[in-house]
Amino acid sequence: MSRSVDRPDTADRYRFRLFVAGTAPRSLRAVESVRRICEAHFAGRYELEIVDIYQQPDLAARDGIVAAPILLKIAPQPERRVAGDLLDAERILRGLNIPSAAEAER
């Protein structure tokens, strides 16, 4: 369930992992929202892996997942986590410690 965009520039490349619990409306909302935000801000330079913890509980244990939905920024380091239904793009970017597109242009 991953989707990557072909772009070799790894230094500036973002890797995200989104954990959701099944197909509850909250999960679907979160997936949709994260995809939208990624496309808007990191188009062409991100990888997004979506994990359903019901399907892959071992991955949840590996990454120490307690709350769901939760978005992990795996690269670049340091790792950051944002929990919730992930609807507010500004707060997500701030939580992931990523300057938003508007800030980056400034």
Binding site: F19, A21, G22, R26, I53, A60, I65, V66, A67, A68, P69, I70, R80, R81, V82, A83, G84, D85, L86, L87, D88, R91, I92, R94, G95, L96
Partner: peptide, 10 residues
């Protein structure tokens, strides 16, 4: 960080 609703399903 928290934004919006979540649960401890994990």
């Amino acid at each position: 960080e928290e934004t919006g609703e979540y649960d401890l399903e994990g």
